[in-house]
Amino acid sequence: MSNLERHPMPRTCTDDDAPGIELLTPRDVPLGGPRAMTVHRTLPQRSRSLIGAWCFVDHYGPDDVSTSGGMQVPGHPHTGLQTVSWLFSGEIEHRDSIGTHAVVRPGQMNLMTAGRGIAHSEFSTSRTTTLHGVQLWVALPAEHADTAPAFEHYEPQSVTVDGASALVFLGMLAGTTSPVATFSPLVGAEITVPAGHATALDVDPSFEHGLLVDTGTVTVSGQEAKTAELVVCGTGRERITLQAGADETARVLLLGGAPFGEQILMWWNFVGRTQDEITTYRQDWQRERDGSAGSGRFGSLPPEWDQTLPAPVLPPVRLRPRS
């Protein structure tokens, strides 16, 4: 998914190693034009930029696409990251500049590695009546930032953990391991907890974890959270408890990873380390989408695309680290 903010703010992202628990509330961001669907963004924000290598968390829906228009994101670029698409309802069609054409459905993961550069589009399908899911970004470590672009599709099998059910799409949890390779230690899983039930998750104490609430009210190791809120648990915890409300099944996403240990600069859809890199990525994309002689960074744009997104204008000042 693209960041469609008209004036994206540059962010220099560092680890926040503060122990304990934080509650992050979302801000609403329109995705597209006059009939835009709204996404609820909890990461990045001023108080925290990263959870492990997870650097971007958008939650959306459930949306009636006849009202919202669904997801309509034309071709756009990415660098230095991986995108993770995960749905609870609906379908999204994906095309990219390395020749991938795929549809993601509930309980399935699309993982796209941008590496040195890729472009993709995302549209909800005509079969979709209700669209509901998350879009996540993972920052690539500097040594892998220029890796070759790639795409993987994975459908995990449900496992039971302390009375709850889990779909582990990245990393290891509850005795099951995703076969999908990552470039830094990560975990990603959908957890469904029955109404009134408490579930204890054994987790890696070297990880920091985020619990994103999709449905219901959940108390995460003593911190209550509601839909689209994100509870962050610092490193050093071997167990995280999830208590569902008495009247409704709760569904959360567990996102975790080892503290990233690097600074990254995020602007629009690019992750880099310096302003010069970001400037180069923007110039390359503008030239390639306009059909000018470019670097070829973003591959072969699919012939099915009748439009692509232009990059916003960079701020007229030097991008500086955010304290």
Rank of each mutant, 00 (worst) to 15 (best):
S126H: 12
L24W: 03
A114M: 05
Q135V: 12
S221W: 02
T38E: 10
G115F: 04
T227H: 14
G216L: 00
V317P: 11
W267G: 01
M71G: 03
F207C: 03
T241R: 03
R237I: 00
E155C: 10
H7C: 08
S124E: 03
G133H: 06
F123P: 01
V104M: 08
G272V: 06
I278G: 00
K226Y: 11
L255G: 07
G32E: 13
T308E: 06
V220H: 00
G256C: 09
A244T: 01
G69C: 08
P179F: 04
P185N: 09
A189E: 02
H76L: 07
G133Y: 05
G99A: 04
N110P: 13
P10T: 04
E22L: 14
S66H: 13
Q275D: 10
L230F: 15
P106A: 05
E93W: 08
N3W: 11
L81R: 04
V232L: 11
T12K: 11
P34Y: 12
G175A: 04
F207T: 03
L255T: 05
R6W: 08
E122Q: 12
S323T: 14
L254V: 08
K226D: 12
L87N: 12
L136N: 07
W285D: 01
S126F: 11
P19G: 07
M71C: 13
T67I: 13
G257T: 06
T25D: 12
S47Y: 10
A228T: 10
I191D: 01
L4I: 04
A150P: 02
G196P: 02
G33R: 14
G61F: 01
L319E: 14
M9E: 10
P8E: 09
G133F: 09
S124K: 07
D290Y: 01
T176N: 08
A174N: 11
A198N: 03
R6G: 08
G272S: 09
G188W: 12
T113S: 14
D28L: 13
S121P: 00
V161P: 03
L242F: 00
A311R: 00
P77Q: 09
V29S: 08
T215R: 15
H78Y: 08
E5N: 13
V252K: 01
A145Q: 09
D276V: 07
A174M: 12
G256W: 09
P205E: 11
A36H: 07
D28E: 15
E152K: 12
E229S: 09
E93A: 13
P302E: 01
E248I: 01
E304H: 08
R297G: 00
A102V: 06
S295L: 00
N3S: 09
I240E: 02
S292C: 10
R116M: 06
H197N: 05
T279H: 05
T280N: 03
F183K: 09
L230P: 02
V220S: 00
A244Q: 00
F56P: 03
D63Y: 13
V271L: 13
P205H: 07
T79N: 09
G52D: 15
Q223F: 00
L173W: 05
P62G: 10
H153D: 12
A228H: 14
